[in-house]
Amino acid sequence: MASVIQRLKAYWRTFSRPSRHLSMGFLTVGGFVTGIIFWGGFNTALEATNTEVFCTVCHEMRDNVFAELKTTIHYSNRSGVRATCPDCHVPHDWTDKIARKMQASKEVWGHIFGTIDTRDKFQQKRLELAKHEWARLKANDSLECRNCHSEVSMDFTRQSMRAVEAHQRELVPGNKTCIDCHKGIAHQLPDMSGVEGW
């Protein structure tokens, strides 16, 4: 027993002493590699939470926004290209992604502590949640939409007249951005009384 303690003590001494045997180079490279491993793990965890499966495990999302998405063009269309939750809701840029995740944690908190546990409560909260998304998309000029759509690639001769007129009048000159005109593109709208343009 005593010898075990002795040996542990010895290990501890080597461990806590400034390094004599390991080269400076090893420490730097080793630290770098470990860093990458942890960083990767963190990002992997981040990616795992960045899938539609994760977004819809909790029933608020499955029964409300996901059920609604299923009836729209972003879930099923003739070309078979789908938009998933993170395509529209999680920024691709890393810092923006972390910022959005921290905000989303608050929404997960709301789930665990049952502040949004029925359709009714969800509907009451809905305008507030929608306003966050509108403000975000307005501020970044609808970046997430533009990851898939680009007005430069739109063939106006193939769009409907209503679309062409609106896009040429407001979108091309940059007066408005996608979310100004395309609210409710993926889910049902909250109570819109008082919202600008409704």
Binding site: T71, T72, I73, S160, R162, G184, Q188, L189, P190, D191, M192, W198
Partner: peptide, 14 residues
């Protein structure tokens, strides 16, 4: 014109 998914209910009238 097409009216696919245009919401008309208590909350919003597209």
């Amino acid at each position: 014109h097409k009216i696919d998914n245009y919401q008309v209910d208590l909350r919003a009238n597209r």
